[in-house]
Design a protein around this nucleic acid. Structure first.
Lengths: 341, 341
DNA sequence: TTAAAAATCGAAAACGTTTTCGAAATGACC
DNA sequence: GGTCATTTCGAAAACGTTTTCGATTTTTAA
């Protein structure tokens, strides 16, 4: 079952490939009549252009690459849905790779995408990444990159993010305004900017409201895949600092770990200790009590990242100057049961 | 920043592109010394082969397409992880598309992938799909297809599945052996084979154990994205059939909806009514009580589907006869709290 | 030294398009 | 009928590789 090519249509009609190609692409220097004949013949011969040949000739693949650091779960699955939807709408296909939070893998995968001649790439950085030359190289080679969620401020490209510090500030301020006074923070590991920013937001909110920051109330949860981390640290904090009345957790996942422990240990949420999550993952409504959290708009993030990227691709193609944008998507507090007495 | 090409290396060294190409690919008719010079020059000039040109020449893209029916959540995210991991290991990139359970979209996307010259495609059928000519066309055009999870028995290609009927049979038999007698089933919609098979398994298990099938105990949950369905039907069944002592739910999602209602209504699980889910999604350990369920090996499914596909791609390329395989992955019962008194 | 064998290289075709540029045909106009 | 403008078409180059096949050189064997 051999594919039909331009030359097949051409010889069937006794004309040249040039004419066939032009007719199919709507060039104006082909007469109405032959265009009609070509189109009909293409139809009956079931002609499908060979994308690879087109790619080679036009030097674009209508494909974008995506590198995400973690497994396709929770937050990234929302982002991915946004990416897929918008990309399809704009006529692009998307190749997905995951770096598993490894810098070396991320670097290799970016190189692979460039070798594959994708028109642009979307990426969210691995926790390990603190050298950005691979990204700068890509940009220098005219492959636009837009960073989302886990970004690096120092690299000069478009970014779409949320304001983690502000969101955390809002969350903790909310708790303070609700009357909670001794508020702990279960933070993430020390490297990722997200983790740092949310911690900073927590600290600033305390200071802004005249509550002294107490480093003993900060626990580190650096296991991103399970809620055990939250569970165990909850156990620990209740032994070490039983006087707390609220916990601001870096993700819904650790918040859920906390609530699970509290449920089992008979600690009432929010009466004894309130819990505040982050991301508004699906399961935050599954747990009892339902989790108060920050809505992190993953779907929109994917959407706008693709949109910006494709615009930049067009700019580069048309030799227009490309201006990088930093888009900060709004977050909002979703108040549920875990913080309202 | 222009990419260096074979001809750049060739002219830098005063030799032909042929020689450069062969040296780089390890042809034996190039002397050790010139090979070394070529490799070094390629290194210093930072040569990266143009994949598009290679694709055109070799007529393969080292890329596979994946079409999934639903949003990347829950079960499909596990499958996707399996696919990505195995594909990368075997040197293939993967393009992902989602059909949103629409036949027309599925058809269009498959055509798109073929036009893009992917080497093969993995797909899980939409709920609407009952015409399989698009798939047969793809296979006829020498693009191998392997179906996973939501398959069609009538199309002649490799498939990787679980035995839904058997898994459901096992689940219900487990409940019966535990002493439950009046077991309801919250089924899925009427079209998908999964839904039908699980229902059939339920029915057969009852019959096999001498319990009369009662159609009044079967409720339909056809909303796949939320647990409201389970919640509402739980409410309904307790009003209409308060004498039930167990529910076998088609997915963990509806099972969680049921448990949420039971928790709120003060109905004890499993003491008054036991609940059995399906898939072993992450959140089945989040809910209280933890959910007894069927483990559906999504990650492995992705793994083996890719593996089979790539083998078939190789067979076709080498003009070997390709034999289709039907792989049935084992499922098993994960016993948790929702069924043990 | 010479013939045969082996080693080493390169010209050119091919993959299937797109697009430039010029040529041929047609139409318009006086 | 002759000039010019317009319409319509096609030859050929180009995109960057891979691979066949023949040519040239070097080595081996006698």
């Amino acid at each position: 079952m051999n594919d039909t090519k331009l030359i097949d249509i051409a010889s069937a009609l006794g004309i040249s490939v040039t004419t066939v190609s032009k007719a199919l692409k709507g060039y104006t220097d082909i007469s109405k009549s032959t265009r009609a004949r070509v189109i009909e013949m293409a139809e009956t011969m079931n002609y499908i252009p060979n994308s690879v040949a087109v790619n080679l000739r036009t030097n674009e693949t209508k494909t974008i690459g995506v590198i995400i650091p973690a497994t396709v779960h929770h937050f990234f699955s929302s982002v991915l849905n946004g990416i897929l939807e918008e990309a399809e709408k704009r006529g692009y296909l998307v190749i997905i790779l995951q770096s598993n939070e490894k810098y070396e893998l991320e670097k290799k995968q970016l190189a692979l995408l460039i070798q594959k001649r994708v028109d642009g790439v979307l990426m969210s950085l691995s926790n390990e990444t603190d050298d950005f030359s691979h990204i700068n190289d890509a940009i220098k080679k005219n492959t636009p990159v837009v960073l989302f969620d886990k970004i690096a401020k120092r690299v000069d490209c478009s970014k779409v993010v949320i304001n983690d510090a502000k969101a955390a500030f809002d969350a903790v301020s909310y708790l303070i305004n609700k009357g909670y006074k001794r508020i702990a923070h279960f933070r993430g590991s020390y490297v990722p900017q997200n983790s740092i920013d949310r911690f900073l937001g927590y600290k600033r909110a305390l200071e802004a409201h005249g509550i002294e920051y107490d480093s003993k109330l900060v626990y580190v949860c650096d296991n991103n895949t399970d809620f055990e981390d939250g569970y165990e640290n909850a156990q620990k904090i209740m032994a070490e600092n039983p006087d707390i009345d609220a916990i601001f957790a870096i993700t819904d996942l650790v918040a859920i770990g906390i609530i699970k422990y509290f449920n089992e240990a008979g600690i009432k949420t929010p009466e004894q200790v309130a819990v505040f999550g982050f991301s508004n993952w699906f399961m935050s409504t599954v747990i009892s009590p339902k989790l108060t959290t920050i809505d992190q708009p993953g779907f929109e993030m994917g959407h706008t990242a693709v949109s910006i990227l494709i615009d930049e691709i067009a700019d580069i193609k048309e030799h227009r100057p490309v201006t990088h944008q930093i888009i900060e998507l709004p977050t909002r507090i979703i108040e549920r049961e875990s913080t309202v007495k």
